[in-house]
Design a protein around this nucleic acid. Structure first.
Lengths: 215, 215
DNA sequence: TGTACATCAGTGAACGCGCGTTCACTGATGTAC
DNA sequence: TGTACATCAGTGAACGCGCGTTCACTGATGTAC
């Protein structure tokens, strides 16, 4: 079998197809920011992506598949955030302030994906909402594993860690909603949201410390 | 002017009109539970309400006006909950457990209205979402006034009370989401949600106590 | 009480529109020799 | 390198459908005398 030294031709046709696929995804994300994913049509997406409606079918079976792909991409962004923040030494020394910074920063930078999660979590296309809620459940468990390794938390019961994780994720989604509602170029509001995120995480941590010490 | 002793005829036509109007509202609420309000059509609502599409216009100018009326009705339910719970002596002695009980009970009894608020808060019809978020902001301030009168809270700064109120409302919406997702006839899950609501409110209160005592 | 007229909630036909989807096609890219 | 054929992303016409909205109407309810 002549597997050695494959030409790796980077076929132009395939590259172009990939570009169109991304144009469709970007168009759908853009349009759903204004009206919600469930309310946009295949023809609108095609128009925004600069293709004819029938070309859509070369990339996705229907709008539902497109929606589920957007869910995947959005959670990939979310998971990348966690991976990156684990590399940040700040997180170990001051998890609360560092988390608030990272949260607001990343959400702002990836407004579209976080907005998609927050917006379509309820009341969107049924399969898309279901997928998002399933992914959020998974994410809570993943974050619990990360949290459990942190100092001050390592000796908590796994049930407590799971609950803190749930509160953090809920807090994250709520703050994502606020950042998304925030108009651009209002750094004052941004600082307010960051401060709110800090206070809420502090509340959660303080509350838990008390809880564990006196019950 | 012969204003004395008006017949008060309880006109049959008017009563029938009111019944139809309520049938439309009920139909829209029912249908939007499954697909979200923005995705249901005027003709679907008319069909579900048992009238011909054109009769819809005798009651609402368009679907947007119907949606805004549902927002009003949903918040009327929410405010009634607060008014009723203020009469409950339990609230003054054990605000946390009482609130959790009331919250889960009322939400379960008025699933449709709370579901409407939670679902349409984001990503629904733009004007409906805006109206809901505006009403939620008002509600946070109203609840702050109620909370400020409670023992142990009466000497807090108004800023702190406002923030606790915001956390309570956020908690309420989150728990409403959970109750709504909950399948019927699962009293075990219900108790779990109630316990979760209790723990979270306790966290908020404990966190604040600490905060105020050592900072 | 009875009659003649007014009101108006609900009807049914009709309209133009954007939708999702099918199908046969085109022409640039890719492959074999 | 040049030629002949295959592939397949994107095209454009066509379809049937449910939609929101208009309009003139009907007939039960309400009112005046």
């Amino acid at each position: 079998m002549t597997v050695i030294s494959e030409p790796v031709p980077t076929p132009m046709r395939q590259a172009q197809k990939e570009r169109t696929r991304e144009a469709i995804l970007a168009a759908a994300l853009r349009l759903s920011q204004e009206q919600g994913f469930a309310q946009i049509s295949l023809r609108q997406v095609a128009r925004e992506a600069g293709i004819v409606p029938t070309a859509f079918y070369r990339h996705f079976a229907d709008m539902e598949q497109l929606g589920l792909t957007l869910v995947e991409h959005s959670f990939a962004t979310l998971r990348k955030m966690i991976r990156d923040s684990q590399r940040d030494p700040q997180v170990f020394t001051n998890i609360i302030d560092a988390s608030a910074d990272i949260l607001v920063g990343v959400v702002k930078e990836h407004k579209a994906h976080f907005g998609f999660i927050a917006r379509e979590r309820f009341g969107g296309q049924v399969s898309v909402s279901k997928a998002i809620r399933h992914e959020l459940d998974l994410f809570v468990s993943e974050l619990a594993v990360v949290l459990a390794r942190l100092p001050n938390i390592e000796n908590w019961s796994s049930e407590d860690v799971q609950m803190v994780s749930r509160l953090f994720v809920r807090n994250m989604v709520s703050n994502a909603e606020e950042v998304i509602e925030m108009p651009d170029n209002r750094p004052d509001l941004e600082e307010e949201i960051k401060e709110g995120a800090r206070r809420q995480m502090r509340l959660i941590v303080l509350g838990f410390r008390d809880w564990n010490s006196d019950s």
